[in-house]
Structure formats: C-alpha cells, structure tokens
Amino acid sequence: MVKRQKRQFNNVRALENDYVRSTETHAKYSKKQKVRIRRRLLVFGLLASVILVLLVSTTISQNKRLAEKQELKEDVVTKLDEVKEQQDMLSLQIAKLEDDEYIAKLARKEYFLSDNGEIIFTIPDEEEKDEKSDKNSN
C-alpha cells in the first residue's frame, strides 16, 4: 500500500495557467524581498553596532584624558600655591633687607661683626660638643 501512495503523488501534475504562474511569481518576488530586507537589516545592524562601539570608545578615551588633565591641573595649582607662598616670603625678606637696622643685626649674627663697645662670645654647637666628647673618650 505504501508503494501505491507514492505513485499517486508522482502522478500529480501542477496546473499550467496564468493564475498559478502569477502566484508563483508573486511568491518568488516576496521571498526575494524578504531576503533583501534581512540583508538590509543585517547591514544596518552591523553599521549601527560599529558606530555605537566607536562612540563608546571615544567617550571612554575622553573621560580618561579628562581625568589626566584634572590631575595635572591639581598638581599645577599646588605648585602655584607653593610659588605664591615663596614669593610672599621673598617679598617680606626684601622689605626687611631694605631696613638698615635689620641688615646690621644680620651682619652681627652671621659674620660676627660687633657694634662699638660689644664683645662677641662664640658658643660651640651641640654637634661640636658631641664630636669632641667622642674624640676624648677614644
């Protein structure tokens, strides 16, 4: 019986008329359009994903650069504050050096100069005392 059924299917013939041909043509056309749409969607998806990856990578690299610049700015601001403090200190020292009394006091202290009627006594530093006591014990 199985063989008999096979024969029946082989004997069936498709109709050859305008309606069947137009339906087959329409089916082929719609199948081709579906394939085209899928290809377009695939290309569009790939293009969109590439653009998205580029945008994300650009954002990440810009954030990294921004963090580096912010760190550099903080370092420069710290150095600027130090330089301003040093400038203030030097301005104060310049103002002091313009005073004759300060210069005289500085000369007496640093170069052991004396004023009229003054006697200068030098007291050894503690390091010198320690060195002398070490030499005496040996």
Rank of each mutant, 00 (worst) to 15 (best):
F44C: 07
Q86M: 12
H26P: 00
L113Q: 07
V35M: 08
K109S: 13
V83D: 04
V53P: 00
R39E: 07
R39F: 00
V50P: 00
D88C: 04
K64T: 13
L47N: 14
Q86W: 03
D100F: 00
N138H: 04
L15K: 14
R38S: 14
S91F: 06
E24P: 01
D18M: 10
L97Q: 07
Q70D: 07
E24G: 03
K96G: 04
G45A: 09
M89S: 15
K79L: 15
G45P: 02
K84M: 05
A95K: 08
K69Q: 12
V53Q: 01
T25W: 13
A104E: 08
E71G: 10
L92P: 00
D75T: 11
M89K: 14
F121Y: 08
R39C: 00
E71Q: 08
N116V: 11
K69P: 01
H26F: 13
L15D: 09
L113P: 01
F112W: 01
F112Y: 06
D134E: 14
S133Q: 12
K31V: 10
D81Q: 09
V56F: 02
Q70W: 00
V76S: 06
H26Q: 13
E24I: 15
V76A: 09
K73Q: 09
L52D: 03
I103S: 03
R7M: 10
N10L: 15
Y102P: 04
D125Y: 03
E101S: 13
K28A: 15
A27P: 02
E16C: 10
E98Y: 04
S61D: 04
T78Y: 02
R38I: 03
Q8N: 09
A67Q: 05
K64V: 12
S137V: 12
L42C: 06
L113G: 03
K129R: 12
